[in-house]
Design a protein around this nucleic acid. Structure first.
Length: 488
RNA sequence: GCUGCUAUAGUGUAGACCGGCCAAUCAUGCGAGCCUCUCACGCUCGCGACAGGGGUUCGAAUCCCCUUAGCAGCACCA
């Protein structure tokens, strides 16, 4: 019986098996340090993480910083922080910028094998030849000449744009993107933040293959925008005679109503449209964190999506549901009164109300609200003139009469049963004078209100404002509390 | 345009490789009710899909073809 019950809650989505994973796997998460991680990154990170946990093995964090133009020096720390927050089972970290000489050595080997050549053609000229499926003059240079040119390249004998190392592929390949794609280039500026002296850089397809092989990566899960790269990379594997990892390419994930492009976010922050990388209108992990979304929820949501090749649209509802499962049992409950109006309750005696911090766990204790005549109520609750009876939660019932504009509110008994029988709404309230100003920030704008003083003890935690929704307490100051709306 | 991939309810997902057990799974969402001093949680019931058209077959969500739609790539980015 108990087993049957718990089974029902363990409908854990199981990821499909990977080939050749029986003896464990080596996988990697390979972000480019250009800005903070967002939901899109979380999918790759969570999927790879889950497979490593499933089969056992190593999980490599590889910082792909081989394009100094796309490296934001601050992002090294940002990315590290985001990964810490996500709680990935990273076993080792490598920086590609530390491995340049490794790539140089492999490049020389590849040239010696005749698998690559140093091309000094004009870019436009090469492109024309490529589209016409024709070899450029450099392609047939003898190995010795290629090696000499490569040495010259490493000795800074070429300026930016004058030279590129190309992988020999198939000039007749129907996809022009496959034909003799580039592997190394010279960049004179900007200087690399971590390796200021560097000027010969590998392109992604080369460094990725080199590292996947060198680090022993067995399985690669990445977005299908890399399908063409996988095909290109296969040429390099073939030239070296290396074993190709198992690849899985998941579909594109569209995300409603959120900016994910790093450059757009950066621009928006610079122009003041967004307050920072954790502006709640952005899809960064830090924005989610600020709103009270927990990393486990993000990971669970990503695993539920899985590795399907179909393009999908990410739904916030599904993420919120995952988050609520985690947050509901732990979040303390408090009253938040939006748009408060003061009301005098006629005919009521002072009384102290004790409310549970959590309805399912009495041991967590109570909060006390001392009523002594005046309360603060959500103005919206009094707007409906047909409403004659309301129960103030854990206090008593009140009768409302709308005489001339201002409602007249009077004590109407303690009986909860009466309130239920009359289908009276049970609403949140605060004793006048005991309130703390509280601004609830939502993606749609700020909601001004007041909340219990106890909320001041919940800094950086997620609480539930009863009948309003979950919120992360972002700041507690003398001026009041700032909370971010998480979800209902 | 060229090269390739994909198509199950509002959203996500299982089933597809090995056709029948699928009048199609689970979650989420929505609706109704129960429970409950929250519009939360929990429980019950309900709504809702095999993109379209051909073909193969006794039988197709599952295999084949076409159409349509979406996506990716076609960078000296990752």
């Amino acid at each position: 019986m108990l087993a049957a019950l718990s089974e029902k809650h363990e409908h854990k989505k199981v990821l499909p098996e990977l080939e050749d994973a029986g003896k464990g796997v080596v996988m990697r998460f390979a972000p480019n340090p250009s800005g903070p991680l967002h939901i899109g990154h979380a999918r790759a990170a969570a999927l790879n993480d889950a497979y490593v946990k499933m089969y056992g093995g190593r999980y490599i964090l590889r910082i792909e910083d081989t394009d100094p133009k796309r490296v934001d020096p601050e992002a090294y720390d940002t990315v590290a922080g985001d990964i810490r927050w996500l709680g990935l089972g990273i076993t080792e970290t490598v920086y590609q910028s530390d491995r340049l000489t490794l790539y140089y050595d492999l490049c020389r080997q590849l040239i010696e094998k005749g698998g690559a050549y140093v091309c000094t053609c004009d870019n436009e000229r090469f492109k024309e030849l490529k589209m016409a499926r024709q070899a450029c003059p450099c392609r047939d240079q003898p190995v010795e000449q290629n090696l000499a040119l490569w040495e010259k390249m490493l000795a800074h004998g070429f300026r930016e744009g004058e030279v590129t190392v190309r992988i020999k592929t198939d000039l007749l390949h129907p996809d022009p993107a496959m034909r003799d794609f580039p592997a190394f280039r010279v960049l004179d500026s900007p200087p690399h933040p971590r390796k200021p002296g560097a000027f010969v850089y590998p392109l992604m397809n080369f460094s990725v293959v080199a590292d996947d092989h060198l680090l022993g990566v067995t399985h690669v899960i990445r977005g299908k925008d890399h399908i063409a790269n996988t095909r290109r990379q296969r040429y390099i594997y073939d030239h070296f005679g290396w074993k190709v990892p198992v690849y899985r390419h998941y579909g594109r994930m569209g995300i409603e109503g959120v900016v994910l492009s790093t450059s757009q976010m950066r621009l928006g922050i610079k122009e003041g449209t967004y307050s920072g990388w954790d502006d709640i209108r952005l899809g960064t992990l830090r924005a989610l964190a600020r709103r009270g979304i927990l990393p486990e929820a993000v990971k669970n949501a990503m695993l539920a999506i899985g590795i399907g090749e179909t393009d999908i649209s990410f739904s916030w509802d599904n993420l919120y549901a995952e988050n609520k499962k985690i947050v509901d049992p732990v979040a303390n409950r408090y009253f938040f009164v939006p748009d408060p109006m003061t009301a005098t309750i006629h005919g009521a005696h002072p009384v102290v109300s004790r409310l549970l911090l959590h309805p399912a766990d009495e041991k967590r204790g109570v909060r006390t609200l001392a009523f002594s005549g005046n309360v603060l109520l959500p103005a919206a609750e009094l707007a409906d003139r047909t409403r004659t009876l309301i129960r103030l939660k854990d206090l008593f019932n009140v009768a409302i009469e709308h005489d001339h504009g201002r409602p007249h509110i009077a004590f109407a008994g303690d009986s909860l049963a009466d309130a239920r029988a009359a289908k009276a709404p049970i609403i949140q309230w605060l004793p006048a004078g005991a309130e703390v100003p509280c601004t609830l920030r939502t993606p749609e704008g700020d909601l001004a209100g007041v909340c219990e003083a106890g909320v001041q003890q919940e800094l950086s935690k997620v609480v539930q404002f009863e009948r309003v929704g979950f919120a992360k307490i972002d700041a507690v100051t003398d001026d009041g509390i700032i909370a971010y709306f998480t979800h209902k």
